[in-house]
């Protein structure tokens, strides 16, 4: 039996209205132009239908003003659509500063979700309405794509790097989650549900089925389990940087460049510890954790390092690698002479 037949998708996010508006306006204009062309075409074909077998058409070859018009007018229209579309894109791509983070790992053929509060889900994500949610995503194998039609958001999920997407649900409900990048045999089975809950329901959901602890506490467990704590002391004494107050701060590298210690940087350190070594430290000290830690464990570790400071709200993570606004003002911290970047942070405090 055919159920739920519809011609227009549900709109349940803060950006959905904007996307729909652009779509509708484009639809109206394009339909009008297409119908106009088709009508003119059919009219001409009928009006000038050959009357006698030897008839010749009017031998006009060009009309410069007309040709210039139908080159310039479409171009102006296209530019208008371009600007509108680009504006919308920036809105869709840039998460607001107060967004809450959820970590997502895609693998053939499921979505694994970790909340900062410690909840884990598979192929389901519970989120509160009215709060921007930022997803930090990676894949364990091939490229996947996180697609929620009702939210009008979509983002490829790539192995070996983080991509982000964000949305703010506006209406409570249950919405489709699709994998939209072909990923193998059960690609069409890599689907799930987004449950947008009212804040009250969301709080109730959070308290249900008590998890072992927050994601950061799980990360702390791994921090000891994988031996990170043996070198990364919290006293600037070891051969390794103090990781307190590191997250989202600029790090001066041995190459003289500065990099923001974001999710991607921390992840890279586990896979390629000798690349982008901080100033004052040497390569060939940290072991390579490739194949030792899973993507989910890395996310927990990042969450732990994040919890080591700075305090939430002072600076928001950005896994895209784009520098936050404060980047310029903090340049120079951890410069030559400082024992470590993190150390200088401590001194400053």
């Amino acid at each position: 039996m055919i159920t739920n037949f519809r011609l227009w998708p549900e709109s349940a996010s803060s950006v959905a209205g904007g996307v729909d508006l652009l779509f509708l306006i484009l639809l109206v204009v394009c339909t009008a132009v297409s119908v106009g062309i088709a009508a003119f075409l059919i009219y001409s074909a009928i009006r000038y239908h050959r009357k006698s077998p030897n008839e010749l058409g009017t031998q006009t070859r060009y009309n410069i003003p007309a040709e210039v018009t139908w080159t310039v007018v479409p171009f102006i229209f296209f530019m208008a659509v371009f600007v509108w579309g680009a504006k919308l894109y920036f809105e869709i791509q840039r998460p607001p500063d107060n967004a809450m983070s959820i970590y997502v790992v895609g693998k053939q053929w499921m979505w694994k979700v970790q909340h900062l509060e410690g909840q884990r889900e598979i192929n389901e994500i519970h989120i509160p309405v009215g709060r921007p949610v930022k997803l930090i995503m990676t894949s364990e194998d091939v490229i996947h794509d996180f697609f929620v039609p009702a939210f009008r958001t979509k983002q490829d999920v790539l192995p070996d790097r983080y991509t982000t997407t964000w949305f703010e649900a506006t209406t409570p409900g249950k919405y489709h989650l699709f994998c939209s990048q072909y990923c193998g045999t059960k690609h069409s089975g890599m689907i799930g549900w987004i449950y947008a809950l009212t804040p009250v329901d969301y709080q109730r959901w959070l308290t249900q089925g008590a998890p072992e602890g927050s994601l950061a506490s799980t990360g702390e467990k791994y921090f000891h389990q994988f031996g990170c704590a043996n070198c990364h002391h919290f006293n600037n004494q070891g051969r390794c940087p103090d990781l307190r107050n590191l997250y989202m701060r600029p790090v001066l590298l041995t190459t003289g460049k500065t990099i923001i210690a974001d999710d991607s940087y921390i992840r890279e350190k586990l896979h390629d510890p000798d690349a982008q070594v901080p100033w004052g430290f040497s390569a060939n000290v940290m072991p390579n954790f490739t194949g030792v830690v899973t993507e989910e464990q890395i996310l927990a570790l990042i969450s732990y390092i994040k919890a080591l400071g700075p305090q939430p709200g002072t600076q928001e993570p950005s896994s895209s690698g784009a520098a936050p606004a404060e980047y310029g003002t903090q340049k120079g911290i951890g410069g030559p002479g400082a024992t470590s970047n993190a150390g200088s942070q401590v001194e400053k405090r």
Binding site: G18, L22, F82, G85, A86, L88, Y89, R152, S180, Q181
Partner: peptide, 12 residues
């Protein structure tokens, strides 16, 4: 080609 729209209709 409209960036904001493509996000939704891409790969559909």
């Amino acid at each position: 080609a409209a960036l904001g729209l493509d996000v939704h209709v891409h790969d559909t």
